[in-house]
Design a protein around this nucleic acid. Structure first.
Length: 407
DNA sequence: TTTCCACAGGAATAAAGGGCGA
DNA sequence: TCGCCCTTTATTCCTGTGGAAA
């Protein structure tokens, strides 16, 4: 049977190559490594010096890279390692392997060790992520490293996501402990968390942080330079209106000099312009992109929460809508318990709720303020949403299927 | 200066769930 | 199938915190 309406509708979703706006959209993504890194001369120079032993065929130093998110730590690491690999290729005596692992999602040393083993194994021969004794996983790791031979550089990006420092100790001390013999191993740890280094046990700190490179935040001028550099690769000439780059740079500078955020903003603004069939990316596209990114960020954070984390967040949404925030933990609890009842779930203990609220704050979804009323009221914490209540409600309702009138 | 309040959060431990090798 | 070993999420217990009041 012929359905003209349906066919007309379907025709609207055909795909055509769209080369307007972007020349090379990938140049704004995290995977792209530019030919030149803007505004990072000092950091690159220090990092370069720390990698120098590799090309000399000497035992590589363990290097610890730190600085806030989006200041070019990962980009600089990839940039220098690409050049190192290129230059090592001309030196017969040096055999270099680099392995980059992002520890986001790897909560423990165990999982990280399994990931490293699997990076070195062929597909199909990979190790399962559970079920083995820890010693078996480490033995597997040393075997794979010995098989690689030569110099191996392991990059652990977002290394602060690993809860325990056992893997860092094992890797940085592997040679001294005699578990590897045929391979010279160097570890490059990258962290956004400035306190991470201080929290390491002294034995790990002294071996992992043989060389340290601190990446400072970009200022608005440096961010503009970064964006201009990518603009020429990513967009067709004269596609961006004059105010677009300064505005993206200003947002990035406001969010603690974060180039990644500024680049994401530019990418999203370009996508919106293309979606609108516009010839140019305008200030309006940037402002819309900013809102959309914020929403995505909240939704992503919410999706990683356990059910009780979601219930606790929903309790705060309810309190926010009642105008009862900032709310003390003890005031969040009864609303949380009501949400649990509505969901047909048993509430967890006060101690666990504290942990859930702390996680929400860590994800940047809520704000927590410490208060102290002294002998009259003691010390306590108040919390409130860190984003518009509509955005959070939308994100959490999608997961919980809540009846808004019930709580 | 000391005491007190109301928690926050660390430490130890348990239970449940899932994968592995024998 | 069973025992082992891991992770995640929870519980209980308990110590630490810091500003106002005494």
């Amino acid at each position: 049977m012929y359905h003209p309406v349906v066919n007309q509708h379907m025709a609207d979703f055909s795909f055509e190559q769209d080369t307007r706006v972007f020349r090379n959209r990938d140049a704004l993504t995290e995977q792209y490594t530019p030919d030149e890194l803007v505004g990072r001369d000092e950091e690159l120079s220090e990092f370069h010096a720390a990698l120098q032993p590799v090309i000399n065929g000497e035992n590589p130093s363990n290097i610890f890279i730190y600085g806030k998110s989006g200041v070019g730590k990962t980009a600089a690491t990839r940039f220098l390692l690409q050049r190192l690999e290129r230059d090592v290729a001309d030196v017969d005596e040096v055999d270099l392997t680099t392995i980059e692992v992002n520890c986001d999602g790897l909560n423990t040393s165990y999982q990280t060790a399994v990931e490293l083993v699997n990076r070195m194994r062929d597909p199909g021969n990979e190790m399962s992520s559970t079920g083995y004794p820890q010693a078996a996983v480490y033995n597997g790791l040393w075997e794979e490293l010995e098989t690689q031979g030569g110099i191996v550089l392991i990059v652990l990006d977002e290394v602060d996501h690993i809860d325990d420092d056992s893997i860092l100790y094992q890797l940085s001390r592997a040679r001294d402990n005699g578990v590897i013999d045929n391979v010279d191993l160097g570890v490059i740890g990258i962290s956004n968390d400035l306190s991470f280094r201080e929290d390491l046990s002294s034995k790990v700190r002294s071996s992992l942080c043989e060389r340290e490179v601190n990446f400072s935040a970009y200022n608005a001028t440096e961010l503009q330079e970064v964006l201009r550099q990518r603009e020429t690769v990513a967009f067709h000439d004269d596609t961006l209106e004059d105010e677009v780059v300064p505005l993206c740079a200003a947002y990035g500078a406001r969010d603690s000099g974060d180039a990644r955020q500024a680049l994401d903003l530019l990418l999203m603004a370009g996508d919106l312009a293309r979606q609108d069939d516009a010839e140019h990316v305008t200030e309006q596209h940037v402002r819309r992109a900013k809102n959309k990114l914020k929403k995505n960020q909240v939704e992503e954070g919410i999706s990683t929460l356990s059910p009780h984390g979601q219930y606790a967040l929903y309790a705060l949404v309810v309190l926010e809508e009642r105008g009862e925030t900032p709310a003390r933990t003890r005031d969040v609890v009864p609303v949380y318990q009501e949400v649990c009842r509505q969901q047909g779930d048993e509430p967890v203990s006060l101690r666990s709720i504290r942990d859930h609220l702390a996680s929400l704050a860590q994800l940047g979804i809520i704000d927590r303020m410490e208060k102290n009323r002294g002998r009259d009221g003691g010390k306590f914490t108040e919390q409130q949403l860190n984003h518009e209540v509509e955005i959070v409600r939308a994100g959490v309702s999608e997961l919980l299927e809540l009846d808004p009138s019930a709580v």
